[in-house]
Design a protein around this nucleic acid. Sequence first.
RNA 1: CGCGGGGUGGAGGAGUAGUACCUCGGGGGGCUCAUAACCCCCAGGCGCCGGUGCAAUUCCGGCCCCCGCAACCA
Length: 510
Amino acid sequence: MSKFYITTPIYYVNAPPHLGHAITSVLADIVARYHRLSGKEVFFLTGTDEHGAKILRASEKAGREVSSFVVEIRESFRNLSPALNLSNDDFIYTPDKKRHWPGAQKLWQKLKEAGDIYKGKYKGLYCVGHEAFVTEKDLVGGKCADHDEKPQLIEEENYFFRLSKYTAEIKRRIESKELLILPESRRNEVLALMGEGLKDVSFSRPSQDISWGIPVPGDESQTMYVWCDALSNYISALGYGSEDETKFLKFWPADIHFIGKDILRFHAAIWPGMLLSAGLLLPRELVVTGMIQVGGRKMSKTLGNVADPFELVEHFGADAVRYYLSREVPVFDDGDFTQEKFSQAYEGNLVNGLGNYVQRISTMVRNYFDSRLEKPAEEEILKAPLKKGEVEYVSVPYFIEKIVFPEYKKTMDNLELNRASDAVFGLLKELDGYVQHYEPFHLIETDKEKTRVVLWNLAYGAVSLAWFLAPFLPQTSDKIFDIFGVVGKPQSEWNTFVVKEHKALFPRKL
RNA sequence: CGCGGGGUGGAGGAGUAGUACCUCGGGGGGCUCAUAACCCCCAGGCGCCGGUGCAAUUCCGGCCCCCGCAACCA
């Protein structure tokens, strides 16, 4: 059985999860489920990034001990899994001394042994109020936004990682697609960056400035900066650096790192550089998602337009949120969220579309055939074909197998999840049209046998929809299998359908 | 000249060198199994200016506008 290792980023715990985190996790989950369903041994990792000066300052501001301060937000990220039905196999967090630190420190050690760690001077803008370095972004009009003070340009000694040394090799891996970056435009962006040559990166800070972090092995006076601390989660979670590296040996390299475009540079430059230095394999693929905006604007706490995934789930259910995030928002481009768009998508495609379809078919089967439909003979099935265009006639199962499935598989394999979803909902549209064409609700009065064929095809269609949607809408998919009495049955055994009475799959919201 | 992505009917999206597609909304018709759902038809569009081509929304150049990134916001 082949393995498949997929990760989300580890999320920074400076605030509870918002829809942007949810979308990355949901997309990764859909891919994880898809590969699991196609028979691979999948390891799906998510987690949180909890170290750093920002977090320490936030905890101090709240008058809390930092180690307990982060737990709350960590737990809210962990709760994304039950809320959104994420199938992650593990959850890693950076302050975990037992599970994470050994891996991070071993990795550091490897880089050091490779001669790629050296002491250097870091020059930066230091804000006295923050007692830390700030970036240009923290400034408003040259002054620190929080303290209204002008930061000072100061120097301090810390460790650097010789990233520059690996520019050519990283570039080669990306160009040759040994390290595949999707979509193409992101790949180009990174390659353009490589063209300028990568600079060495600051890799640690004096621990007096940042005590909240992982100590540099062999030099307690320094704390690891984010790179080695956070990026190493992808291997520490597999046991790298621990006594038992079985999982690491089995699952590394990652088949896919799902990331947002905002952290592309770290994942396309620094992370591969570190892995090369340590003599480890590079991930096969970086999948770079767009950002989800709210009402056309970037989500921000200042604007007060942060969309809360938990609220949405509570109101609409996990599958509705998963639906929106995977279909109504493009995977690779920026998307937009508004309450109105969400409701519209919910009403249109889930309530009126999928929910209504399942309802009308199951009702007819119950009313006309006492809830039970035996599979008609093949030649009978051909007598109620699906009309495609003007002249082409195919049976429903044939259409699903030869037209829908290949399109679904192709787009899923290319991670064009919204297009795969399009293919499935396109099938739904065909099936609704098929109902209208044969009018089983009339046909039953004149030709019961043909009605049986028509309804059997429609039930087969419903179950097929459930099969296709399993990675996207796992709960709904299970419900549909249950309604048609084929829970746990492979496609080859979708012969007799025994239909149950059921509640609306997607209740209408007022 | 820091880097990059965009501008497609009322709205949101897809797409292509040659009849431009989908969803929602608007107008009309049909059906009644279904969660006032479903099916069919109609109106309306490729930011601006040049260039290359038999042909450009699609390729090239310029302009206008919007938006990201710029080394710890998915």
